[in-house]
């Protein structure tokens, strides 16, 4: 799920950047430092949408660097337990399948795939129902429910399930091509 949120960060700037463009330099550095990062509390910082406030700088002892507290608005993406996501399958194996929803990767174990879907190996590994009417393979779109999350320094991993009502394949690349 996406969020709009105000965050704060202390930015250190080298004295060579001081001048008329100081604010621009700060914003550029903030974008470089923050966008694309990931934290457990907020999730992925997708984009900075605005600067709320740049506080007064504080000279660091022993160095010429100055620390500026910067308040900024940003769009973040974080998955939640219980959330329903529509994800694209990126890999299928006998243990289950991986799917991607935005920057987040979700693993759906074969225990959490409906029991009537069986793994079929081959060039295009897939899970298929016995009558062949439903197939999950690479690039399929699935609706899944997040049941667990784990946050790394740079990534968020999720466990999902499609073993519930109204979950499962919503579009099969095989039928459209």
């Amino acid at each position: 799920m996406f969020f709009h949120i105000v965050l704060e960060r202390n930015m250190q700037l080298h004295p060579r950047h001081f001048g008329r463009d100081l604010r621009e330099k700060l914003v550029s550095k903030l974008m470089k430092d923050v966008e694309g990062t990931c934290s457990g509390r907020h999730g992925f910082v997708v984009a900075i949408t605005g600067i709320e406030n740049v506080g007064k700088g504080l000279i660091r002892d022993g160095t010429g660097f100055v620390t500026f507290p910067v308040k900024y608005q940003c769009v973040v993406f974080r998955p939640f337990k219980g959330e329903i996501l529509e994800a694209v399958v990126s890999m299928v194996n006998k243990m289950g399948f991986f799917a991607e929803a935005g920057p987040v990767q979700i693993f759906v174990s074969n225990h959490l795939i409906p029991d009537d879907m069986e793994f079929q190996s081959g060039d295009m590994p897939n899970y298929t129902t016995s009558d062949g009417s439903v197939k999950i393979q690479k690039d399929s779109e699935v609706r899944l429910k997040i049941i667990g999350t784990r946050v790394d320094a740079t990534e968020i991993f999720c466990i999902g399930t499609i073993k519930d009502d109204f979950l499962g394949v919503i579009s099969d690349p095989g039928t459209t091509s």
């Binding site: 337990k81 959490l112 009417s133 667990g148 399930t161 073993k163 009502d165 499962g168």
Partner: peptide, 30 residues
């Protein structure tokens, strides 16, 4: 199915598995 999650994963359950599966799938054999 009970122990399949890494301890690092925060879960409060492993999903409802009542046998009724995806909108398109057939009834499960839970």
């Amino acid at each position: 199915s009970e122990d399949m999650f890494d301890e690092k994963f925060e879960t409060n359950g492993n999903g409802k598995s009542n046998g009724k599966d995806s909108g398109k799938g057939k009834g499960g054999k839970a």
